[in-house]
Design a protein around this nucleic acid. Structure first.
Lengths: 149, 149
DNA sequence: CTTACTGCAAACCATTTGCACGATC
DNA sequence: GATCGTGCAAATGGTTTGCAGTAAG
């Protein structure tokens, strides 16, 4: 599917775990690898399926828990949406998303305008913004077509 | 709490119901009124509580179903988020949201930059975008303070 | 009078939690 | 060896569905 993650990237991951006082376990490593290789913004369930190929005995709960932990320590985040199951993204670079309301596919979009958008000042100086989410919702190519039926 | 909705607004609501082939019922009317008067992006549960004051026999299911129906016909929408319970907004004018990750408070923000943002063209001409969501996540004033403890 | 809507209860399903065992440091 | 992480199973909680009775057009 994809080239193996570089050693440097895994080394960095180990360090991030240590910094967060998380133990380095085979489960966490595999989940991290899968998340980095997935470009489709997988649900916990989807990550679980993929990791299970490598670690057949892993439980869904571990995958889910780990993904949430990753979100907390900045290794991943939950894609913003309006309902539906949680979808995770391991790409921490600044980008936006399009989500098809029918097939639920999520596509990365990159629009200069949205990069480095500053914290709205209406909030006053005391609000602290950690993350800006930009989500376009609509129908993807395939679903536009099949909608004409 | 707030001034009654104008007759014109209710009249427009009736028309929108007729257009969508929805019957005009006391439940729908009250839910609509409450939604329009709420400035706090209420959950279905919160709307339920408020409507119940007027219609004590209404069920939660009706409220929830109605809010979803409203979302479908463009009378409301679900505020984008990362998990948590669905929050509804009856203000269909272009604006953005800030959500406190701790107390879950949602505040409207209005930033010129985001108004009339155009559909990202990376998607190709065949994608159809119905809605752009912009969500800032962080800590609100109150929670920033109580976080220092 | 026909069709849609409501209220109730049960079903669903993603997500979370408690706990004992096993693994990491 | 002490503590954290995992796997299992059960609980949770928001949301959804089926259905019979009721109301709107």
């Amino acid at each position: 599917m994809k080239a193996e993650l570089t050693n440097e990237k895994m080394e960095r991951f180990f360090q991030q775990c240590r910094d967060a006082k998380l133990r380095i376990t085979p489960q966490r490593c595999e989940i991290y690898k899968v998340l980095m290789e997935c470009k489709d913004h997988p649900s916990a369930d989807r990550v679980y399926e993929r990791v299970k190929r490598i670690l057949p005995n892993i439980s869904f709960d571990t995958v889910n828990r780990t993904l949430l932990t990753f979100s907390e320590i900045g290794l991943a985040f939950v894609v913003a949406g309006s309902g539906d199951v949680k979808r995770f993204d391991g790409d921490m670079s600044s980008h936006q998303h399009f989500k098809c309301i029918k097939c639920k596919r999520i596509v990365d979009i990159r629009h200069d305008v949205f990069d480095n958008i500053d914290v709205p000042k209406e909030l006053g100086g005391n609000f602290r913004v950690f993350r800006m989410n930009v989500l376009a919702e609509g129908l993807c190519e395939g679903c536009v077509e099949s909608n004409i039926n």
